[in-house]
Amino acid sequence: MKRAFFKALVKLNNLVMPSLYKKDPMKLSTIQKGVLGFRYWALTNSMK
């Protein structure tokens, strides 16, 4: 059930949140770093 929740969260992230994969992480603002971290956290939990 936990994995299904995170898979749904990742799909929602892909639709709603901006894609930051082409940007340099060192040049991102604090909010963009937070978004990137949240997306990474949700993705890694959906794969466990």
Rank of each mutant, 00 (worst) to 15 (best):
L43S: 10
R3I: 06
L12H: 03
M17F: 11
L28Y: 00
G34S: 09
K2G: 08
I31R: 14
K48L: 09
V35T: 12
A42L: 11
V16S: 13
V10F: 04
F6Q: 01
F38Q: 13
M47V: 04
I31P: 00
F6E: 04
K33Q: 15
K48E: 07
L20Q: 07
A42N: 12
N14S: 12
K33G: 13
N45F: 04
K27P: 00
K48N: 06
L12S: 07
Y21T: 08
K11C: 07
A42I: 08
M17P: 00
K2C: 07
R3E: 09
T30M: 14
A42K: 02
A8Y: 00
W41S: 13
A8P: 00
S29K: 10
K11F: 04
V16R: 11
V16N: 09
L28Q: 04
N13F: 06
L15P: 00
K2H: 05
V16T: 12
R3S: 04
T44K: 14
N14L: 09
F5V: 09
D24T: 02
Q32W: 01
M47F: 03
F38Y: 13
L9D: 01
L9C: 08
N13G: 09
G37H: 09
L20A: 11
K7V: 07
R39T: 08
F6D: 03
T30A: 15
A4D: 10
Y21W: 03
L43F: 06
G37E: 14
G34L: 05
L15C: 07
Y40C: 11
V10T: 07
W41K: 12
S46I: 03
I31A: 15
K23T: 07
Y21Q: 10
K27Y: 03
K2M: 10
V10E: 14
V35W: 03
R39K: 15
M1Q: 11
M26F: 05
A42V: 10
S29V: 04
K7D: 08
K23I: 05
T30S: 15
L28N: 01
G34R: 05
S19N: 15
T30D: 15
P18H: 05
L20I: 09
M17R: 11
Y40R: 14
R3Q: 11
Y21L: 08
K48S: 07
V10G: 02
N13L: 06
M47Q: 10
L28K: 02
L9Y: 01
D24C: 05
P25Y: 07
N14E: 15
Y40E: 13
K33T: 09
W41D: 12
A8C: 04
N14F: 01
N45I: 02
Y40D: 13
K27L: 15
K7L: 13
R3V: 04
F5Y: 06
S46K: 03
K22E: 12
T44Q: 13
Y40I: 09
N14V: 02
N13T: 03
N45K: 12
